[in-house]
Design a protein around this nucleic acid. Structure first.
Length: 404
RNA sequence: GGAGAGAUGGCAGAGUGGUUUAUCGCGACGGUCUUGAAAACCGUUGAAGAAUACAUUUUCUUCCGGGGGUUCAAAUCCCUCUCUCUCCGCCA
C-alpha cells in the first residue's frame, strides 16, 4: 500500500491517476485525509497528557499529594487512545484499497497498445490444427480424467505433452539462472499476512483458494512467497538488485470466466509457472524493468513463437502495479492470443507493506519490487504444440532439444 | 499431541517495577596518525509521528514478537495470540 505521508504529499497526482484507473471511490481520499487530520489532533492531545504523566512519575516521591489530578488525567488518556486506535483501523482499511500511483508513461492515454511484435521463426503455410485436435492423434493430456478427479480447470499431462512441459520448466529455470536469477523452492500455501504484503489481499480475495481449517491460502502466483522471503530486510545498496526465481503451481478460482477461449489448457485453476522477481533501489528501477522486459522477450524469441508485447491501459492495471506489460503468444491452431507473462513494476507499494528497505549514504529508503512470469507453462505448451506441428505430429523448438 | 525454554536496535547480547535517556561488544560512519592502506587511538550510531523554527533548530510522544490489562511509573508483573528452540510421542 501507499504510505499516508506519501499520499498527502502527492495528492494531486494521485487523484489524476485514480481517475485514469477508473477507480470508483475517489471520495475515499477525502475520508482518509479527514481521518488523518482528526488523528493528528488527538495525538497532540494525547502527547500532552503523556508528558504530564511522565513528568509526574519522574518526580513521584516529591508530589504524592497531587495523585488525584493524575488519576483524572488517566481517564482522558484512555479515551484519546481508543479514538486514535479506531481511526488507525479505519485509515488502514482505506489505504489497502488505494491503488499504486501510475508510471509517467500513463500521463498520455494508453489503450492496451501493442509495442512489439515478433512473427515467429517458421513459415510453412499449411493448415494448423488446434492442440485439442492434435491430442486425438498424439499423447498429450487427458482432460476427461482430470475433470472426473477434480472438476473443470485441472489437467493431466502425459506422453509428448508431459515431456515438453518438463523440458520447458528446465529450460526456463536454466535460462533465468544463467541471467542471475537464483532459484528457490517455496511453499505453495501461505498465510494472510503474506498475501496482504504483496497486495493480492484484499483486492483479489474472490480469486483465491482458502484452506479454511488452518487459515492458509493456495498461492495464486509464485511472486507471493518469493517476495515475502525478503520481508523486514534492510539491504546494503551494493547487494541490490536481488534477483530470484521460483517454479510453482499457481491456483486461481477464475470466477466469472467462461466460454470457448478459457477452456482446456487456455485457463486452468491450477497451472505451473516460473516467476522471476527483482528487488532494486529506486534509482535503478526503470532500468531493471527494461532489463526484465528484454529478458522475457528474448526467452520467447528463443522458442521461435509468434508473440506480441502490450502495455496495459491504466484502467486494466493491477492495484499494486504502476506499469504493466503483457506478453502474449499466438495460438496458431485456435487463432487467439494467449497471455503467458505479465511484467509489473510495483515501486514501493509492496515494500511498504513488507518493510523491505536499503541503506544508502546513511539513509534508509524503501526498495522497489518488480515481478514477471518467465513463463507460464500450459499456454506456452499449447503454442508450441500447435506451432511446431508437422503432418499432425509434434516437433519441438531447437532450444528444448537438450531438455527433452 | 504432551512437557519445558525463549522472542530486546544492522548483528550479537545484558537488563525481572523507578538515573534505562535500553549497558557492553561487533559492524557501520567520521576524525587523528600515514605517501596510501591496515593497525592503534578518539568520537558518532535505530525507526515512526507531531509541534516549532528554518539552510536546517529546539522540543514532545511512541516503538524491547503482535494485541490487551495492572500501576503515578512496565522490556520487566498479569492475560492472550503468533513464531522459534529443546525433549518425548506419532508419522512420511
Amino acid at each position: 500500500m501507499l504510505k499516508i505521508s506519501y499520499i498527502k504529499k502527492n495528492i494531486k497526482k494521485l487523484i489524476i491517476d485514480l481517475k485514469n484507473r477508473r477507480f470508483k471511490n475517489i471520495n475515499l481520499l477525502n475520508i482518509l485525509l479527514l481521518l488523518d487530520k482528526n488523528n493528528i489532533k488527538y495525538k497532540i492531545k494525547l502527547n500532552k497528557i503523556l508528558t504530564i504523566i511522565n513528568n509526574y512519575s519522574k518526580n513521584f516521591n516529591k508530589n504524592i499529594n497531587n495523585i488525584n489530578k493524575i488519576l483524572k488525567i488517566k481517564n482522558r488518556k484512555k479515551y484519546y487512545k481508543s479514538i486514535i486506535k479506531n481511526n488507525n483501523i479505519k485509515i488502514n482499511k482505506i489505504l489497502l484499497l488505494i491503488p499504486n500511483i501510475l508510471d509517467k508513461k500513463y500521463s498520455n492515454k494508453i489503450n492496451n497498445n501493442i509495442i512489439y511484435k515478433y512473427s515467429g521463426n517458421r513459415r510453412e503455410n499449411k493448415k494448423y490444427y488446434s492442440y485439442i485436435e492434435l491430442s486425438k492423434t498424439n499423447d498429450i493430456f487427458d482432460i476427461i480424467k482430470s475433470s472426473e478427479i477434480s472438476g473443470s480447470g485441472f489437467m493431466i499431462y502425459h506422453g509428448v505433452g508431459l515431456r515438453i512441459y518438463n523440458a520447458l520448466v528446465k529450460y526456463f529455470l536454466d535460462y533465468n539462472n544463467k541471467h542471475g536469477y537464483k532459484e528457490y523452492i517455496v511453499p505453495f500455501l501461505v498465510n494472510k499476512n503474506s498475501l496482504y504484503g504483496t497486495g493480492q489481499l484484499p483486492d483479489k480475495n474472490n480469486q483465491l483458494y482458502k484452506i479454511y481449517n488452518n487459515n492458509l491460502y493456495l498461492i495464486p502466483t509464485g511472486e507471493v512467497p518469493l517476495i515475502n522471503i525478503y520481508r523486514n530486510k534492510i539491504f546494503n545498496i551494493n547487494d541490490l538488485p536481488i534477483k530470484s526465481q521460483t517454479y510453482t503451481n499457481c491456483y486461481r478460482k477464475e470466477a466469472g470466466s467462461y466460454g470457448k477461449k478459457v477452456r482446456g489448457l487456455n485457463r486452468l485453476h491450477e497451472f505451473g509457472k516460473v516467476e522471476i522477481i527483482e528487488i532494486v533501489d529506486k534509482n535503478r528501477s526503470i532500468i531493471r524493468f527494461k532489463y526484465m522486459l528484454n529478458h522475457i522477450k528474448n526467452l520467447l524469441k528463443s522458442l521461435g513463437l509468434i508473440f506480441r508485447i502490450k502495455i496495459l491501459s491504466s484502467k486494466d492495471l493491477p492495484n499494486t502495479s504502476s506499469i504493466t506489460y503483457d506478453f502474449e503468444v499466438f495460438s496458431v491452431g485456435q487463432k487467439i492470443w494467449l497471455e503467458v507473462s505479465s511484467l509489473s513494476n510495483c515501486l514501493e507499494y509492496q515494500s511498504n507493506n513488507l518493510n523491505i528497505k536499503y541503506r544508502y549514504n546513511n539513509k534508509i529508503e524503501y526498495c522497489h519490487t518488480l515481478n514477471g512470469s518467465s513463463l507460464s507453462l500450459p499456454r506456452v505448451l499449447v503454442a508450441i504444440i500447435e506451432y511446431y506441428q508437422f503432418e499432425k505430429k509434434i516437433r519441438i523448438p531447437k532450444v528444448l532439444e537438450e531438455y527433452y
